[in-house]
């Protein structure tokens, strides 16, 4: 019952967003031109029809880090709520947990997982 308002709101928003998406095709002019839906670039024909090829692997690294830390955060939330009742035991447990977490972060930092964009390119001569 708590979530009913939320669900209704979700439904309303979905309908609304679909409406907003379709408004253009309902109200807008329809003047088809041959190149109007061509991907936005410099104006020369595309060398490569698909842009969905590869991108920098640093993004994967970020994704992995997010996964790790978000999961750990998920572990921490219950703890934060009941921390008052846990006392010293809870503090020690959490401290160890955060400590390990920090270690992981330090490791990633130290190994250069965080500076991925402009690493120096090494050309072998």
């Amino acid at each position: 019952m708590d979530y009913m308002g939320f669900l209704i709101f979700l439904g309303v928003m979905l309908v609304l967003s679909l409406l907003l998406i379709s408004l253009n095709s309902l109200l807008g002019p329809k003047t088809p031109e041959s190149m109007e839906d061509y991907p936005y670039e410099c104006g020369v024909p595309l060398y490569d029809l698909s842009a969905q090829s590869t991108f920098h692997q640093g993004y994967y690294l970020l994704g992995l880090l997010l996964l790790l830390f978000d999961i750990e955060a998920a572990f921490l939330f219950p703890w934060t709520v009941v921390y008052k009742h846990l006392g010293v035991f809870g503090f020690v447990e959490m401290f160890l947990f955060v400590f390990i977490l920090t270690y992981g972060l330090l490791y990633a930092w130290r190994r250069g997982a965080l500076d991925w964009q402009f690493e120096e390119e090494v050309f072998e001569r």
Partner: peptide, 28 residues
């Protein structure tokens, strides 16, 4: 509202529209 509805030639229509929904709905 009165602009023409365009869609990039090589795109994926479903995901293209889904992105808008996914942007608007959670934020609201």
């Amino acid at each position: 509202l009165t602009k023409e509805d365009l869609f990039p030639r090589y795109g994926n229509k479903f995901l293209y529209n889904l992105a808008i929904v996914m942007a608007l709905v959670p934020a609201s």
